[in-house]
Design a protein around this nucleic acid. Structure first.
Lengths: 146, 146
DNA sequence: CTTCCTGCAAACAATTTGCAGACAG
DNA sequence: CTGTCTGCAAATTGTTTGCAGGAAG
C-alpha cells in the first residue's frame, strides 16, 4: 500500500525533473490519478477535472496522459473495444482482475509471475520490457445478481 | 502441435453445427486462419482472401471473424493502438510473446499459469472466464539490428 | 423459395493532431 | 520574453452497421 501524498509527489517531481511545465490542469489530473482507487478511463478523468476547470477538454487529458505514460508514471491498460483505463498508483506492469459484467478492475495479489518472466527471457533470448496479465471473469457480486 | 487439416476441419464442422452457411469467402478465411503460422490482423487476412476473391471486402472479413469469435474458434488479441490480431490455431487463452519492434507474436511454452489462475479464483471468489498474458520485449533478431 | 451472406458506403468511437492564443518559468 | 500548454475543431483509423442484391441450403 502506498499512501496518496507520495504518489502525487513523485509524479509531480518526475514531471519537474523532465522539464515539463506544471499547470493547474496537470495538477488536477495528477491528483485524480494519485487518489483514484479504481482504474479510470480518460472520460472519467475528464469529468472530474471539468468540475474544477470547466474549460478543460478531453484533448488536454489525453495529452497529459501521454506525457505521464512517456515518463513511466502511469500504466495504460489498452482495450480495443472499450476505452483504455489508467493506473497512476502502480505504474509498472502488474496483473489485473477484470469483471466482464461491471467492468471493475482490481489488483490481485500474485507472485510467481516474475519468476515466470525471468525463465521465459532466458529460454527465448528476448529482452523483456513489460508484460500484461489480465484475468477476465465475473466478480462475486455480479454472480449473485445473476 | 496440431496439424493443419484438423484445425480447418474442426472450424468448418463447428460452423456447420451452429447453422452458419458455408460460403467460398468463409472457406478462404478459415484456410488462412488454419494455415497461418503467425497472428495475422484483419487486413492481412483481407489481402490474402482478395487474391482468390477480388470482390471481397474487409467488412466480410470482420463479419466472419466475429462469427468465429462467437463460436470460440478464433482468439482475438486486442490492441487499442495497433490493429487486432487473430489466432485460429489455438483459439483458447494462452500467453504470447510480442516483439515491440517487428510486431511478431509467438507462443511461448509456459506452464504454471493455470495453477495461478486456479489459486486466484479460489482466493477471490471470481468465476474466471479467460485470461490474457502478454510479454512485451525485443526479440533476439531485433536486438542484433540495434 | 427463403433466409442468411456479401459488398458497398456510410457511420462510429476512442484517440490524435494542427493551430492560434494563453500562460508557466 | 519564449517555448510549451490549452482549448477547439477537424482528422485519423480500426472496426461496425444498414441495406439491397446475390447465393446457400
Amino acid at each position: 500500500m502506498q499512501n496518496i501524498p507520495s504518489r502525487f509527489d513523485s509524479m509531480l517531481r518526475k514531471l519537474r525533473e523532465m522539464g515539463y511545465r506544471i499547470t493547474p490542469q496537470r495538477l488536477a489530473i495528477l491528483k485524480i490519478l494519485a487518489e483514484s482507487k479504481g482504474h479510470p478511463g480518460a472520460e472519467d478523468i475528464y469529468a472530474l477535472v471539468k468540475t474544477d476547470f470547466p474549460t478543460t477538454t478531453i484533448a488536454t487529458v489525453y495529452k497529459t496522459l501521454a506525457v505521464l505514460k512517456s515518463i513511466g508514471e502511469v500504466l495504460e491498460l489498452e482495450f480495443s473495444g472499450d476505452y483504455n483505463r489508467y493506473d497512476g498508483k502502480k505504474p509498472d506492469s502488474h496483473p489485473h482482475l477484470i469483471c466482464i459484467k461491471c467492468k471493475r478492475i482490481v489488483d490481485p495479489d500474485l507472485t510467481s509471475l516474475d519468476e515466470m518472466a525471468a525463465k521465459l527471457a532466458s529460454q527465448t533470448g528476448y529482452k523483456l520490457i513489460s508484460h500484461r496479465l489480465d484475468f477476465y471473469g465475473i466478480c462475486p457480486e455480479c454472480q449473485q445478481k445473476g
